[in-house]
């Protein structure tokens, strides 16, 4: 981990304004922010670790537990809501038996919600890793989940 963090740090200038990009890179590499990684980021950006924790927990993007191999994001934007996005979220949650923010016990899926991805014309929309699934219907959920890699 140390080497990978050093590699990430080498792309940034070690000041406070680099913190969020540094954390984003760390999460990009490890999938989440471990206490050790946050501590290292604090030293690099010359802040106290608790400030890093305060910043990281402020932003919805950051995760503090390892994530699943596949990320399911269900859009909760206005258009999606009006078009029945809540029902899609319910369906995914019940099929995976997790709450938003949680990871399935087998580590295959992490379920998340997103405030709006700007694909309002496709509402309701959900995302599996980088793939967009627009005009979702509850009955399409199972097929999409089954078609996703282990």
């Amino acid at each position: 981990m140390k080497e990978k963090l050093q590699e990430i740090f080498s792309h940034h200038h070690g000041t406070r304004d680099a913190l969020i990009p540094v954390l984003q890179d760390i999460q990009g590499e490890f999938g989440y922010l471990s206490p050790d990684a946050m501590d290292a980021a604090a030293r690099f950006c010359r802040m106290s670790p608790v400030e890093v924790y305060g910043v990281a927990t402020f932003y919805a993007q950051f995760k503090f537990d390892p994530v699943g191999r596949n990320i399911i994001m269900v859009c909760q934007g206005t258009a999606c809501h009006v078009m029945g996005g809540a029902r899609i979220l319910e369906e995914v949650a019940s099929q995976l038996q997790v709450e938003p923010g949680q990871t399935t016990t087998d580590g295959r899926f992490t379920l998340e919600t997103v405030a709006c991805i700007g694909a309002c014309a496709l509402a309701p929309a959900m995302f599996v890793n980088k793939d967009t699934h627009g005009r979702m219907k509850p009955e399409k959920v199972a097929e999409i989940l089954n078609g996703t890699g282990n």
């Binding site: 406070r16 969020i20 402020f58 993007q61 405030a115």
Partner: peptide, 21 residues
Amino acid sequence: KLGAGAFVCGEETALIASIEG
């Protein structure tokens, strides 16, 4: 700069805080 998922950062002073880390 990439935001990190906070609606309030559309507010100017919050956006500034966010840029400052």
